[in-house]
Amino acid sequence: MLLIADIDKTYDGGPHIQASLRIPHGASSTILFGPSGAGKTTVLRCIAGLEKLTAGKILFDGHEWTSVPPQKRPLGYLFQEYALFPHLRVRENIGYGVRHRTDVVERVAAKLNVHELLDRWPSELSGGQQQRVALARVLAREPRLLLLDEPLSALDAATRDHVRSELAHLLRGLGIPAIVVTHDWVDALTLGDQMVVMSAGRVLQTGPPREVFTRPQHREVAAAVGVETVVAGRVKRREGGLAILGVGSAQLAAADPGREDVDFYVCIRGEDVTVEKGRAEQSSARNHLSGIVVDVAPAGILTKVVLDVGFELIALVTRQAVADLELTKGADVFAVFKASAVHLIPKSA
């Protein structure tokens, strides 16, 4: 392992954060995921040496790091708003931490395609350019581990998508392991090989991002990764690979997780729920629940439709669908979703 971090940090009268991280040698990036206030940034700052541990230890390549100052740790820390020095030009910013500047600056500037920006001031750069310059500054010191704190949150939505794929490409090309803090599941899926989900100062689940998203092991993880509907349900019977659950006053079918448990959290992603006016005759979807529309609210490019189908179910549909189906409060509708779209988390977990 390159990094073994067992972090225990208590703030006076504040939150208590406990997290263990293992970062293997080699170029993999680990996503530290969770809602704001989960303690992700604190974990990153502890690894960087910007915060002192209350207990626990950090081993880097076999070396104990507890009393090593931040300056002596071979890390590349990308700050949330990039923290480019406003009083220095791009060239001096990139060369700030290195002794033999010229060739190093030229080299990383070429690698990050910021050559033509070298004589500008940071305030003259766009958000995406600032990020590349900040990365160049970090890479000039040839760090052995990158720590990226919400690398995309300072950007507006339009540039974010573009910069995200650029960053993903770059991270894969660099060959340096990275820890990326984010609360955005698109970031997690795009940038991560491994994912550590935190909530309220604890690590809840670790695994490849796709697995975490499709198979959250905790209710909090499901909520944190943006599963819109998380409700309690109880298995009534099992038949032909399906589990039939009672949820509220409704019944629905889910793929049988094959466990003895009967009490589960039922997780359904809003994108997986279709809303229809009448009962569809021909459909492979197992679940057709009748109900009424409780609320209709815009959610980005989609519209969030809250349904009462015996329990509260949230569907994400296009605006066109809202118009076509005349979805307004009180409308009678059917909610349709496949059994495989229902993910079950045992309550005992």
Binding site: A48, L50, P69, P70, Q71, K72, L75, G76, Y77, F79, Q80, E81, A83, F85, P86, Y96, G97, R137, V138, R141
Partner: peptide, 15 residues
């Protein structure tokens, strides 16, 4: 002076 600039300097190995 914004603390992030001071920390950025530390993280770049500067005393």
């Amino acid at each position: 002076v914004d603390r992030k600039f001071i920390e950025a300097s530390w993280m770049l190995g500067v005393s």
